[in-house]
Design a protein around this nucleic acid. Sequence first.
DNA 1: ATTTCATTTTAACAGTGTTAAGATTTAACT
DNA 2: AGTTAAATCTTAACACTGTTAAAATGAAAT
Lengths: 197, 197
Amino acid sequence: MKSESKSYHHGDLRQALIGATEQILTERGLEGFSMREAARRAGVSPAAPAHHFGDARGLLTAVATGGFLDLQQALRAANAEGGDDRVARIRAQARAYIRFGVAHPARFDLMWRCEALNRADPAYLSASVGAFSLLHEAITGVGVLAEQLCDAAKPGIDVRAVAAWSLVHGFTTLARQGNFDPEMPGLMDGVLATLTV
Amino acid sequence: MKSESKSYHHGDLRQALIGATEQILTERGLEGFSMREAARRAGVSPAAPAHHFGDARGLLTAVATGGFLDLQQALRAANAEGGDDRVARIRAQARAYIRFGVAHPARFDLMWRCEALNRADPAYLSASVGAFSLLHEAITGVGVLAEQLCDAAKPGIDVRAVAAWSLVHGFTTLARQGNFDPEMPGLMDGVLATLTV
DNA sequence: ATTTCATTTTAACAGTGTTAAGATTTAACT
DNA sequence: AGTTAAATCTTAACACTGTTAAAATGAAAT
């Protein structure tokens, strides 16, 4: 409850570490991240984080999970923006996805840096599948459950959804890496016009 | 010349380190890589690589450059396979790109892990731009020079090429990360059918 | 044969993740 | 209330990392 006391116990170390990590990611990127640095910024000893997240992978996974939840929110806002027009909804989602990735490069990067994450983490799994499910639903009219995605060879995944996801994700990734400027006049809309929906 | 002598000088340390790194990448991925481990596998002291590559970034950049050259080769083979049919060439390139990424996941990953690389390296730059240029040429009939790409806001980049590249790259990336099975019947062809060329 | 230069080693430094043991605070129970 | 149990954090240590400076060695050039 007391937020400014310098007690032995931090009070909300878990959240503080997540915040510190996000700060580090935007400042220095993933390569500049270290567990010790996060602990340092939270004003706590190097070994403290282990109690809340197990290891570095656990902390990063928590941050990535938050990223997917934010992405979900952006996609939902796009849905609202698109209104009743199905194609408008899809286009709005695509723009939201791209802009999310370009606006939060380090965190977006982390979200797909699966070797640095614990993909078996239930929260991460549900958050990431939930995001894809929104895209899938916009295109096919029906969402996707985690089981369908994890079992990678099963039908239930719509080809159009995979194509749209690939296009949008690829554009975001390549732009994020500096291969072209996503806001170059006409480019994004031109690419999205390729979405055969 | 002498390949088996245990002389003080290695003889071809540069190439040996690149080979060791590729081996490590396929075995353990990028997170399992370390300069010291590469040196160890090459049978040399921890500090030896610095002389050839400067730092770890230099060594990884050399490996990524090799990856882009191999990718170029795969794309050229696809061109040959496609023969005179322009659309067939594009489709073949796309399949080659995807299969290259899925077949060499760790190296493909590294090729786009730009924060771990030295993107200013001329060899890397020319190799990576060369690969994109093949795709661009297949679609627009004309290649791209490095200057056009680096200066990210310039025209000369065809919207169709960016769209195609995004689709193929996104599909490869997402598949590589286990989001779906790229060889699932009908999926790859279905997605590539989206390529409006 | 001597010198010069490229290559590699040794030794050291600061920084990392992780673990085991102990210290401290909060919560739970009688 | 007083005692015990659990959660939280610290201290200390280990093995590892990238990088650097200085010395040692080999090969090439003069």
